[in-house]
């Protein structure tokens, strides 16, 4: 399989390798007092992102449509969204601490795409030939990427209070934290969740408008719709609970992780549901 991907899909393989290399460089930056490993991590992540963009653009041109149809295509796009948001995030918060988490998620997404290899370019059926298709998928996947990053931060937040090495990482100025200021992990995670929540809200709206224009119903209690609603409700609860005393810190971090688990189930697990056969949203090959 590897040989096939290297020969037939070299850009896909190279993108995955760049993400893996970025992960390793970021990991080295954790332990290094120098900036170079961290800078290498950023450079590799940006290079991976650029190549990922080229993979998506190339497939878009080849297929003559947005490459969001199959699970394989969506995983490649998911990796792109995580990498894109992470690079912005790194610049915004001046920290490379979460590069390993982001790198693992981008590489993991590509690796999972490899195991679910479904590279065939399928023609778009009439139901997906809609102006809402691209915004709906894009908004949702950027939202998914945002909450994925929030989860990465939440994991570090939980580990930081339990493992001294991780705690030290959040405060040191060198390869990972560029500003030298201690990181407010709770606030960073919250920032990512609220950004993701807005996109999940817009995605839900766009999806229902599309459903109305395609089938005449804005809501049909399809399993995917229900789980998207569950996602929205869980993050809605997260945002509300932050206002309740005692629901920040570890509790909020756990809730962010639970929220992301729900997101992942909504994305990848719908085919396991007994009601999945009635869903219009299940990817083929899952």
């Amino acid at each position: 399989m590897l040989q096939y991907v290297l020969v037939e899909h070299p850009f896909f393989a190279l993108t995955s390798l760049l993400y893996l290399a970025a992960t390793l460089a970021y990991a080295v930056a954790w332990a290094s007092p120098h900036r170079l490993p961290g800078q290498a991590g950023t450079a590799l992540m940006v290079a991976g992102l650029a190549l990922n963009t080229a993979v998506i653009a190339g497939r878009w041109v080849e297929a003559g449509r947005a490459p969001f149809k199959s699970l394989f295509e969506s995983l490649v796009f998911f990796a792109f969204c995580i990498a894109l948001l992470y690079v912005i995030f790194e610049r915004l918060y001046r920290t490379r601490l979460f590069g390993v988490a982001a790198g693992l998620m981008t590489f993991g997404s590509m690796a999972y795409a490899l195991t679910k290899w479904d590279a065939e370019i399928v023609k778009l059926p009439p139901a997906l030939q809609s102006g809402w298709f691209v915004p709906h998928v894009m908004v949702y996947f950027i939202g998914y990427a945002a909450v994925a990053i929030a989860t990465g931060v939440a994991v570090v937040q939980l580990l930081a209070s339990r493992i001294p090495f991780v705690h030290r990482l959040t405060t040191m100025k060198a390869g990972s934290v560029l500003s030298g200021e201690p990181l407010d992990l709770d606030q960073i995670s919250y920032d990512a969740v609220r950004f993701g929540f807005i996109l999940l809200t817009v995605g839900l709206l766009v999806g229902s408008v599309w459903a109305k224009s395609a089938w005449g119903d804005f809501w049909v209690w399809d399993p995917k719709e229900n789980w998207s609603l569950v996602t929205w409700l869980v993050y809605g609860a997260y945002l509300h609970l932050r206002k309740v005393r005692g629901w920040r810190g570890d509790r909020a971090a756990w809730l962010a992780i639970i929220g992301f688990a729900v997101v992942m189930f909504t994305y990848l697990g719908i085919s396991m549901l007994p009601t999945a056969e009635e869903s219009a949203h299940v990817y083929t090959g899952t």
Binding site: W227, A237, T275
Partner: peptide, 14 residues
């Protein structure tokens, strides 16, 4: 919200 989420989940399990 969590209770409504549980109901939404039940609606996909049954």
């Amino acid at each position: 919200l969590i209770t409504l989420a549980i109901f939404a989940i039940l609606g996909t399990l049954i």
